[in-house]
Computed example of a mutant assay.
Amino acid sequence: MSRSPASTRLASLRALLFDLDGVLTPTADVHRQAWSRLFGAFLESRGNHQAYTDEDYFTYIDGRPRYDGVRAFLASRGISLPEGHPEDGPELETVFGLGNRKNRTFNETLRDQGVTAYPGSVKLLDAAAASGLMMAVVTSSRNGTAVLAAAGLSDRFGVVVDGLLSVEHGVAGKPAPDTYLHAAGLLGLPASACAVVEDAPSGIDAGRAGQFGLVIGVDRGVGAETLLAHGADLVVEDLAELVPLLPAR
């Protein structure tokens, strides 16, 4: 990554707001596998021969709150299901039931395989802490706390805005900017003093809509061109690329 006005702007900011899955940890892969297992079997059971693909994941699901992802994907296939209730069992074919079925699969995989943070992401966290930058995690996942604990990252963040907190406080999820704005507020900072770090188009949309000081895309497979088209100021393939751009303290 070459230096640019966008990349040099990072040195003037006071906080980094990180998405979690696919940015700090490779759990986006676990989520993607869980969604594939869910909707592959679901479509087959209904005789729908338009197969579920990774493109569906990136277009309708990635970065969104879980049940919003279910709604968006079903709408893409012209399938209508009852909403149901948040406590619906995973065997029920409702929006909430399917979302809970996916979450069961995700948690089983997390339990069996564990998770290790990206080494480049850990390098950036270390360097950011040494530079005096404030940091927060902003994730649509309701499993955010469990993922941070499994990856050994819990003690690095005083502010974690996840799917559970969003529901509790009535904060709209991505692509709305509200969760990121909420995290900035908890840090006592305006959006203009914070950088958003995201791998999902919906998260980039949120950062742009919130008028944050910098919106950084991490290309974990969706493509740099896509992230830039959604409004990323710059795109990296690994967060370690950002370490030389941090402010000296």
Rank of each mutant, 00 (worst) to 15 (best):
L148C: 00
P190D: 15
F157W: 10
G158E: 09
H169N: 12
A136V: 01
H182I: 00
R142V: 08
D162P: 12
G152C: 04
A149P: 00
P175F: 12
S192N: 11
F157Q: 07
P177L: 07
L186G: 03
G152M: 05
P201K: 10
S131G: 01
V137C: 01
R156Q: 08
V161H: 11
T145S: 10
L186E: 12
A146W: 04
I204P: 05
G207L: 01
V197F: 02
N143R: 12
G158A: 06
H169C: 10
A193Y: 05
V161R: 12
V196M: 08
A172P: 00
G170P: 09
S141V: 02
A183Q: 14
M135W: 07
D178A: 14
A206V: 00
E198T: 01
G132F: 11
L187H: 09
P201R: 13
A136I: 00
T139H: 13
A146F: 01
G152H: 11
H182K: 12
L133N: 01
V161K: 11
P201T: 07
Y180D: 08
H182R: 09
L165T: 00
S140D: 05
L187P: 03
G185F: 02
S202W: 15
A136R: 08
G132I: 08
L189I: 11
R142A: 08
A146P: 02
V197K: 04
D162S: 11
V160Y: 04
V171Y: 08
M134G: 02
A183K: 10
V138M: 11
L187R: 11
D162N: 13
A149R: 15
A151K: 03
E168N: 12
L187W: 10
A136H: 04
D162T: 09
C194L: 12
K174T: 07
L187N: 06
L148F: 01
R142S: 05
N143C: 03
A136P: 00
G207T: 00
R142K: 14
L181N: 04
I204H: 05
V137Q: 03
A209E: 06
L189G: 13
A184F: 06
V159G: 00
K174H: 11
S154T: 13
T139S: 15
G144V: 04
G207C: 00
G144P: 06
T179A: 15
M135H: 04
D178S: 15
G144K: 12
L186C: 02
M135Q: 13
T139M: 14
D205Y: 04
V138W: 14
M134T: 06
G188W: 14
S140M: 10
P175D: 14
A200K: 07
G144A: 06
V138H: 14
S140F: 05
V159N: 00
L153T: 09
T179M: 15
V137S: 06
G163Q: 12
G185Y: 03
A176K: 11
S202K: 15
G203Y: 02
P190S: 15
G158I: 02
G185K: 05
A193K: 05
V160K: 08
A200S: 14
G203F: 02
A149I: 04
G144F: 06
G170N: 12
L181S: 03
T145V: 10
L153Y: 13
E198A: 07
R156P: 00
A150K: 14
S131W: 01
G152V: 01
S192D: 14
D205H: 13
L187Y: 08
S166N: 14
